[in-house]
Write a protein that binds this DNA or RNA. Structure first.
Length: 510
RNA sequence: GGCCCAUUCGUCUAUCGGUUAGGACGCAAGAUUUUCAUUCUUGAAAGAGCAGUUCGACUCUGCUAUGGGCUGCCA
């Protein structure tokens, strides 16, 4: 009885995919994988006005980065190709006509300008204009025009649209996998446009139902903003006679702004200082937007964070690999209420992931950053440095500031630390420490510590005093790992050089 | 305005009629520490309101309030 699970992610290429869209794609993907089904990518480019070049490529690259694999669709092909709606035009016209012939839809000849005027008029009268059963027979449609007149108008090139003839006073009973049973009376609905002659393309509603049917989609998992059009979609399945294979629906809660009201929008990111897009975006008009990838997030952490925004496993586990998400995912555990997006939590997830990376995994992440700053070292060395510092990394973009002193001697000294350490006996003490270090042959951190520690005690210094003065010389600032990690990595020669630098370049404070 | 959806700590959430309402982020305090971090411990912090149903409601029902979505020849 249960058929093959086939889900689709169907974005419209009107700009970069934002994280709400990524989450929708992710839930579709998890559901498909969980049930051994197929994930389809369909591009819904039925709005010729809002098409943005590059958006489709951006969407595909984003999904790839996130690890969301497409089984069938744009970029991969498949048995139902083409998967771009603009390449399926003839299909929709045929179905639109079928609906008109069966009496489920009609031609309407109003112009957009005329409708705008009607809306304005209604608004001034304190009402809302709705193109519905109350007004459709007063407007120039095939419902009132003679057959010949309709034919003549079409033949002479008048612009027309096909509208759905919404039934009057009927209850549509629907079931949603997340929200349960929902009922709506059709009299509250209007006659939606299904097809427009102006660009010979369908609107979302028609294209969506036709393609989901043709592509044998079993489950439609999409954002809650589509819930209001679900009755229309149910009715369309009925009008086409496809009710027996109508997919099941699941409407996901929306992602809300971190503060204030409303759903997360594309502009929030730069305004509030966090990315709303997976990848950096450069629009054809030159506008740019931050992306998680370029801002230093790991795809796995990003996905983990997104997965838990609106879904939870019912256990206290928080860190999930993609495979673990697949194994644990179910639509029943998706919450109903909108989820406020929390940038801080995204950072926390990222830090967790970075902390658990091995030196070998860290190397390819830090290498490009080092190269950018002209540092050429082996993967082994790069990984080692990243490994030493990873516990204080939240975003990979911080890696350079955190590790630069391993490769580059300080050129200036942090005032706060200098004030605290570069006074009293400390300059003299550092001079003596230099001699001690100069006498050491094995600069491994264990050995250095073995030599220096007794020396500190024997001379009555405190560990903090010695280490922080040394830190001033080697790092130049009050940050970084244990000093023996630093001495070992930079080596004896560099170590002594940096001490000499400090000794000869900075006047003691006081 | 109309229609629809939702409502547990500041935020993400657990709970599916009987719990000291649990966890996580963030916040605060303490411990560790060689700086910065990390880590650990502890703490503050919640059932929108009002009626019902019930021996008993966070959980079920209704109303109100609040939030959100839709109301385009956009998706």
């Amino acid at each position: 009885m249960s058929r093959e699970v086939r889900v689709r992610f169907a974005p419209s290429p009107t700009g970069p995919l934002h994280i709400g869209g990524v989450r929708t794609a992710l839930y579709n993907y998890l559901f498909a994988r969980r049930h051994g089904g197929k994930m389809i990518l369909r591009i819904e480019d039925t709005d010729s006005q809002r098409f943005v070049p590059g958006a489709e490529e951006y969407i595909i690259e984003s999904l790839r980065w996130c690890g969301i694999e497409i089984d069938e669709g744009v970029g991969v092909g498949g048995p139902h190709a083409p998967y771009r709606q603009s390449e399926r035009r003839e299909i929709y016209l045929k179905y639109a006509k079928q609906l008109v012939e069966a009496g489920w839809a009609y031609y309407a000849f109003d112009t957009p300008e005329e409708l705008d005027a009607l809306r304005k008029e209604a608004e001034e009268a304190g009402k809302t204009f709705a193109y519905n059963y109350e007004v459709r027979e007063k407007l120039p449609t095939s419902l009132v025009l003679s057959h010949d007149e309709v034919e003549a108008r079409i033949a002479r090139g008048d612009q027309w649209v096909v509208r759905f003839k919404m039934p009057v006073d009927e209850t549509v009973a629907m079931d949603d996998l997340i929200r349960g049973h929902v009922e709506v009376n059709t009299s509250t609905l209007d006659d939606k446009v299904l097809y427009k002659s102006a660009d010979a393309l369908p609107t979302y509603h028609l294209a969506n139902i036709v393609d989901d049917h043709l592509m044998e989609i079993s489950h439609v998992i999409r954002g809650e903003e589509w819930l209001p059009s679900l009755p229309l979609h149910y009715l369309l399945y009925r009008a086409f006679g496809w009710e027996d294979t109508r997919p099941e629906f699941a409407h996901l809660p929306l992602l809300l702004k971190p503060t204030g009201g409303g759903k997360l929008s594309k502009r929030d990111g730069d305004k509030m200082g966090f990315p709303v897009f997976p990848l950096f975006w450069l629009s054809p008009t030159g506008d740019t937007a931050h992306g998680y990838r370029e801002d230093g997030y790991l795809a796995e952490a990003f996905i983990n964070m997104l997965a838990l925004l609106g879904w939870n496993p019912g256990t206290e586990q928080e860190i999930f690999s993609m495979q673990e998400l697949i194994d644990a995912f179910s639509l029943e555990r998706v919450s109903k209420a909108g989820a406020r997006f929390q940038p801080d939590k995204a950072k926390w997830f990222n830090a967790q992931y970075i902390h658990h990376l091995s030196d070998e995994q860290l190397a390819p992440i830090i290498q490009p950053i080092l190269k950018e700053h002209g540092v050429v070292v082996s993967d082994e060395q790069a990984g080692r440095v990243a490994g030493i510092m990873k516990e204080r990394v939240t975003l990979t973009t911080e890696l350079w500031d955190l590790t630069s002193f391993f490769f580059v001697a300080p050129t200036q000294y942090e005032e706060k630390l200098a004030k605290k350490q570069w006074k009293g006996d400390n300059p003299a003490m550092l001079g003596k420490l230099r001699e001690v270090l100069a006498s050491i042959d094995d600069f491994s951190k264990e050995n250095t510590e073995q030599v220096v520690k007794p020396w500190i005690e024997a001379n009555g210094y405190s560990v903090g005093q010695v280490m922080n003065t040394l830190r001033l010389a080697l790092v130049g600032a009050g940050k970084g790992p244990g000093m023996y990690d630093v001495t070992e990595f930079i080596g004896k020669e560099e170590c002594l050089k940096r001490i000499d630098n400090l000794l000869s370049n900075l006047q003691p404070i006081e």
